[in-house]
Design a protein around this nucleic acid. Structure first.
Length: 445
RNA sequence: GGCGGCGUAGCUCAGCUGGUCAGAGCGGGGAUCUCAUAAGUCCCAGGUCGGAGGUUCGAGUCCUCCCGCCGCCA
């Protein structure tokens, strides 16, 4: 960046708030009467006193790169969801001042020193954002070869959608392919704030980090207003993926999600009742005496057969779910995959396999086999479609079907040709869990 | 203060360029099977599409104003 002429040494003169470690413009401060009766200038946001400072900083020529950043932002699908794009363009329209990227060493000892100038410390976005590259071995191992996709919270949009691409442009590096911005969580419709992000060990390694949801309102700082994700996972009866399932099903990208135990229970029980229960319905000896995921020959599944119907439905479901996932709409994707299991349940009601099992006629046996084959294949596809959402649960399901991890890779259904022995387990695959707040409940009503 | 968005069945929301657009899911109500995890399946929503004007042969769907929300920036 230095070599390409985007960094210069400048002097800053203005208001500085020591306790907030923030430089403020004249519109961000106001007069107040101090304890000793004198007039003091304070930050209008924090109320902390400010002082007039003049100091040297390294500056980044942000303004010069705004047109290029804008071109990138305008590229279709680079900023997702679309409602964030307008906000960022709006930011770019307001005259962005050049960025101060260092502080005098005496004010800031703990940071990374500016190369060749020990009197200055890099602060703060240049060193922070560069981690995206250095963590992947840059520059010693060259620039990353795969495209970058950032998944970020809405609170750091400016840094990732304005500063970061500007830094990359200045350094002559490739820009991210996409920045995916998600919202925060509220609870019971009230404003909450994210507290120290914590990554849940139980969800590793394919986990999304989730955050404690904490009340903002100082009047309601009682225990009941905090949702501890670790505690939720502990309640999940050995299936922490239920929490992931809920979080992904009920949150939207374009706005904040509202957490509620009521919905958490409703949504996860719905999964247990449609998908989990479906497995139980066809994995018992009254219906499936061989306890197998049957393989079918062409003769077993002539065109108007249960298996064919489910395969046709499964194909269109898979296509739709995939389209939803491609636009990162997991809620819609999950909503779109459930009808496959629902149709299996309906067919079971309709064909009454428990009766077919007692009927020795070839027709009855063929129908039964086709139904079971189609239903198991549908469960296999459901597991595959749920894999990004509930990885561990999908593996458990596929295992019970007598399949292995490879079978999660194929998203489209096909007539099963080889029989597999089920791995039957008396324990329900998906428990019906009653999540709830901790015992010491909030007494405020 | 500036920019943008929203206000559609109890709740969460779909409704692209105006004429099957009055819908889905959940909740709620009713019916029914019994293989299954007190699980399944089926039927039932008559809501003046925030309010008032306007454009049009015709407007949740376009324009203006008003009311009420929200987001981002300052």
């Amino acid at each position: 960046m230095l070599e390409r002429g985007y960094i210069y040494k400048g002097s800053y003169a203005g208001w500085y708030c020591r306790s907030d470690e923030a430089y403020l413009t004249s519109t961000q401060i106001e007069d107040r009467i101090g304890p000793d009766g004198t007039l003091v200038k304070v930050s209008s946001e924090s109320g902390h006193p400010v002082e007039l400072v003049e100091e040297e900083n390294y500056m980044f020529k942000l303004g010069a790169l705004v047109p290029d950043v804008r071109r990138w932002v305008e590229t279709s699908n680079v900023i997702w969801p679309p409602n964030r794009k307008a906000e960022i363009l709006n930011m770019l329209d307001s005259k962005l001042p050049d960025l101060s990227i260092s502080r005098p060493r005496r004010k800031l000892q703990w940071g990374i020193p500016v190369p060749h100038d020990p009197e200055q410390t890099i602060y703060v976005w240049v060193d922070a954002l560069t981690n995206y590259l250095t963590a992947q071995g840059f520059p010693t191992q060259g620039a990353p070869t795969h495209p970058m996709l950032h998944v970020i919270g809405k609170d750091i949009v400016k840094f990732h959608c304005v500063y970061w691409p500007a830094f990359l442009l200045a350094a002559g590096l490739e820009l991210p392919q996409q920045v995916l911005v998600h919202g925060h969580w509220t609870m019971d419709g009230r404003k909450y704030s994210l507290r120290p992000p914590l990554v849940c060990p139980a969800l590793q390694p394919t986990a999304l980090p989730i955050h404690a949801i904490v009340a903002l309102d100082p009047m309601s700082k009682s225990l009941g207003n905090v949702v501890d994700p670790v505690q939720l996972l502990d309640q999940a009866d050995g299936v922490p993926d239920l929490v992931r399932y809920y979080l992904l099903k009920e949150s939207r990208l374009d706005t904040d999600g509202d957490f509620s135990y009521r919905r958490l229970n409703a949504v996860t029980k719905e999964l247990a009742d449609t998908v989990g229960n479906l497995l139980s319905r066809i994995s018992n000896q009254r219906v499936n005496s061989a306890l197998e995921f049957p393989g079918l020959s062409v003769d077993d599944a002539p065109p108007p057969s249960p298996c064919q119907e489910l395969i046709t439905l499964g194909s269109s479901v898979a296509e739709e779910v995939r389209a939803c996932y491609d636009r990162h709409d997991f809620g819609a994707g999950i909503e779109a995959l459930l009808p496959l299991a629902r149709r299996c349940n309906a067919l079971i009601n309709e064909l009454e396999p428990w009766k077919l099992a007692r009927d020795d006629s070839p027709a009855a046996q063929a129908t039964l086999k086709s139904l079971l084959g189609g239903a198991f294949e549908s469960l296999r596809v459901t597991a595959a479609l749920l894999y990004p959402v509930t990885p561990a649960l999908s593996l458990a399901l596929i295992h019970r079907l007598g399949c292995d991890e490879q079978d999660l890779q194929c998203l489209t259904p096909a007539v099963p040709t080889t029989a597999r022995e089920l791995r039957v387990d008396k324990q329900p695959l998906i428990p019906r869990v009653d999540f709830g707040p901790p015992a010491q409940t909030d007494t405020r009503a």
